[in-house]
């Protein structure tokens, strides 16, 4: 009874349900009423609430990335290009993916457990009974919050990563700050920035839709809430990593 759906039929149904939730959420995004207060609250939870985590992740990733890449670059006598390698890796891949994974863990679990508890205590039914569409009231604000705040968080993580790299460059590797920053800046193209912002938008939508779906599908009381929460984090993290491959491929094809 407590297994994840594994049969092909169950898996197909699951994909169908998630797509249908996504379609309903997008469709009702443009219909009144708009729950502005809920949207702002969620943006605050996702954006402001995740800032510390995201900035710490960015800083230390940038720092360690600099250490590692300078080591490799030294063997080719190209240590001066450290800044470029760090900036490109961060903006294209590590920034979006790590930020989204952190937020999948922090926000995705929160969404699934909140909606799951509301479901098992009949609050969702009470909401429907009082004339509210739970998709509009609960799913849409969370979707808007993650899709809008994830790019912001990613930019923060990228910036902190480059600063982290700057620290190790200057204090450990003794590369001059000017050289590091100039290489970092020149190494980035507009397409890198575009791709680096497109990814978190897609990943944000993934986290919100998957987590809402898991929460709203909870069964079996409090234990079920725990199960939904775990599933939300696991599934959205895996999807982020898979989608990242496809998005990267897509972006690289169009930036030739």
């Amino acid at each position: 009874m407590t297994k994840m759906p594994v049969s092909p039929k169950a898996a197909v149904k699951e994909v169908q349900d998630v797509s249908s939730l996504a379609a309903k959420a997008f469709a009702s995004m443009f219909r009144r009423p708009f729950y502005v207060r809920d949207i702002l609250t969620q943006m605050d939870i996702v954006g402001v609430g995740s800032l510390t985590v995201v900035m710490l992740t960015g800083f230390f990733t940038g720092a360690v990335l600099t250490l590692q890449s300078s080591k490799t670059l030294t063997t080719f006598g190209a240590v001066a290009f450290t800044g470029q390698l760090v900036a490109v890796s961060l903006v294209r891949e590590l920034g979006p993916v790590l930020t989204s994974l952190m937020i999948a863990g922090r926000v995705g679990s929160g969404i699934a457990s909140e909606l799951g508890s509301m479901l098992v205590t009949e609050q969702i039914n009470a909401m429907r009974a009082l004339g509210t569409d739970p998709i509009k009231k609960l799913v849409v604000p969370r979707l808007l919050a993650t899709t809008s705040m994830l790019p912001v968080a990613t930019v923060m993580a990228d910036a902190m990563g480059i600063i982290g790299g700057l620290f190790t460059s200057v204090f450990v590797l003794r590369i001059s700050a000017n050289l590091y920053l100039a290489r970092a800046w020149n190494g980035l193209s507009y397409m890198d920035l575009f791709g680096g912002l497109l990814k978190p938008i897609v990943f944000g939508a993934t986290v919100a839709i998957v987590s809402c779906h898991c929460g709203l599908r909870t069964y079996g009381g409090t234990q079920g809430v725990g199960r939904s929460t775990t599933q939300a984090v696991v599934v959205s993290s895996i999807l982020i990593i898979i989608f990242n491959l496809f998005l990267t491929r897509l972006i690289l094809v169009y930036t030739r």
Partner: peptide
């Protein structure tokens, strides 16, 4: 669900476990 909104407006329901938000 959308058609039900006007029906539900006529009905008040007290849930077994209160179901307060």
């Amino acid at each position: 669900e959308r058609q039900l909104v006007s029906v539900r407006q006529k009905i008040g329901m007290v849930f077994q476990e209160s179901a307060l938000f």
